[in-house]
Amino acid sequence: MSAEAAPKAEAPAGLAPSRTAIDDQLRAILCDVLGLDRERVEDFDNDTGLFGHLPELDSMAVAGLLTEMEDRLDIIIEDDDVDGEMLETYGGLLAFAEAKVVES
């Protein structure tokens, strides 16, 4: 059910998915949620603002984003994980996703 050509965050057995794979997955999900071209999302850097900066990213959209991250990255996101810092910038969200993937 993932988007076309979305690379899977999978790595050879025994190895954690690479940071690049997680980064690719996260950008693919943001493409779907924000309805942006891949090129636009490729330009996101660590400081690109998300929640609170993009008006279309309301609580329902963020909920969809986190739920899709759970499914595609095979992680579980708890209530306490969700805070302003992790949602504020692309870098914050990526760091969160990386930490969760390592943990799972």
Binding site: D32, V33, L57, M60, G64
Partner: peptide, 17 residues
Amino acid sequence: TQADIGGGALWLRAEPD
């Protein structure tokens, strides 16, 4: 599946599209 259809899943879109 969405892969059969191509493109991003429209139910994920923050704004209906």
